[in-house]
Design a protein around this nucleic acid. Structure first.
Lengths: 139, 139
DNA sequence: TTTATAGATTATAATTGTTCTAAATTAGTA
DNA sequence: TACTAATTTAGAACAATTATAATCTATAAA
């Protein structure tokens, strides 16, 4: 039913209503929510859920590589259940995050790894700018 | 003498010893220091200087596009006086930042801008991983 | 050289997202 | 049904950065 939840189960974790709620919330979600947004949206249905649970669950999921943490700015972490390779556009004004499919691909850094013997785990590309809506408002 | 300082002057700002010290510290500096590191290193010579002055000066310089703010992780901002287009490798363990020259160039996002009418101001590419030294220590 | 003042610096308080803590609760098992 | 280790919870702690308000100073005019 929910891949995220199944993977938590496979990881030997207890299946709590809170974890199911968060997994369901994230499933297919392309809005790149923050912990605060998830908390706000789940509050009506789970009034007792605390931020700590949300952070714990998200951290666990990120460690298990089921979701990614996007550190696009210093204010807040955004979470993305889409683990396929894609880029993000980040609006400096409204802080919205938009997926950017990439065809051409990011340049290859194998040479850098070989030359320097530093190990690259992840290449993060962020397009920083101002979104359509915010551009219109400013006029 | 110091380009950074000259540009502050041209911007009509007052030329204080603190600003000169920070400009001198950053000149040709490829270590990507944080505000705390700058504070620590300037303290012996300027014992009364406060963090606020450092943050104010760095913010001003960033606004004037004399230096870049690197938000590679949520803990701290790193500052880079090198405004030429290059990438950064960030070590998740020791938080060191290493410059990565790029030849091939970042893919072009003009098409994305045209299609979506979002405006891209800056493309930030961060290579996240573990540096040579930290890899050796772990063994 | 003195004075005036807008801008800069300072110490400290406030802010804010995230992490920690310790007590209470609960999922899964015997 | 009872046990126990994992989980949740509320609230405290934390740390980098920003804001505040008083003091100071670089600069220009008198």
């Amino acid at each position: 039913m929910n891949k995220l939840f199944d993977r938590l189960k496979e990881g030997g974790l207890k299946l709590t209503p809170q974890r199911l709620a968060i997994a369901d919330y994230l499933k297919g979600n392309t809005s790149h929510p923050t912990a605060a947004k998830i908390y706000e949206d789940l509050k009506p249905q789970y009034p007792s859920m605390s931020m700590a649970t949300i952070y714990n669950t998200l951290s666990t999921m990120a460690e298990m590589e089921l979701i990614q943490e996007l550190r696009l700015h210093k204010e807040q972490i955004h979470y993305d259940p889409d683990m396929s390779h894609h880029l993000h556009f980040f609006c400096r004004h409204c802080h919205s995050v938009i997926d950017v499919p990439h065809k051409e691909g990011i340049p290859d850094f194998k040479e850098f790894e070989k030359k320097t013997t530093n190990r690259i785990d992840h290449v993060s590309v962020a397009l920083i700018g101002v979104c359509k809506k915010c551009l219109q408002k400013k006029q």
